[in-house]
């Protein structure tokens, strides 16, 4: 699924790095624990999280994530947005809860990471 389709589904606003129109998301992983994000392969995966700080971006960068959904109406600050652009990570801001976002994506055919 394209990043813009995902943003539409979760009524999200796209910020951070420009959308890679060719990137296909197949799986999702929901976690506020960055320690766990670092444990798994994140190929073709979107991270759904309510953790909104610089370390969210650093972790996403190390995990090779290309797109992160920030749920619960979390607002990234300028530092975070700069890190996202530098690491080529698109952020989707959504007012929905993590549970709701996860349910929407699952219903739309996005697979769990495991």
């Amino acid at each position: 699924m394209k990043i813009k389709e995902i943003a539409q589904l979760v009524d999200g606003q796209i910020v951070g790095a420009p959308v890679d129109e060719t990137y296909e998301v197949e799986k999702a992983f929901a976690s506020d624990l960055m320690s766990d994000v670092l444990r798994f392969s994140m190929d073709e995966t979107v991270l759904v999280t309510g953790l909104c700080n610089n370390q969210t971006m650093r972790t996403a960068e190390m995990a090779d994530l290309r797109v992160v959904i920030l749920g619960r109406d979390k607002q990234p600050d300028e530092d975070m947005l700069e890190l996202a652009v530098d690491a080529d990570i698109t952020l989707v801001k959504s007012k929905f809860s993590i549970f709701k976002i996860s349910g929407i994506l699952y219903n739309a055919g996005i697979k769990p990471l495991y």
Binding site: L33, M34, S35, T59
Partner: peptide
């Protein structure tokens, strides 16, 4: 609070 401290660092 930063999202770490799960005790996975050294094993990882």
């Amino acid at each position: 609070e930063m999202g770490y401290g799960a005790g996975m660092g050294l094993p990882n």
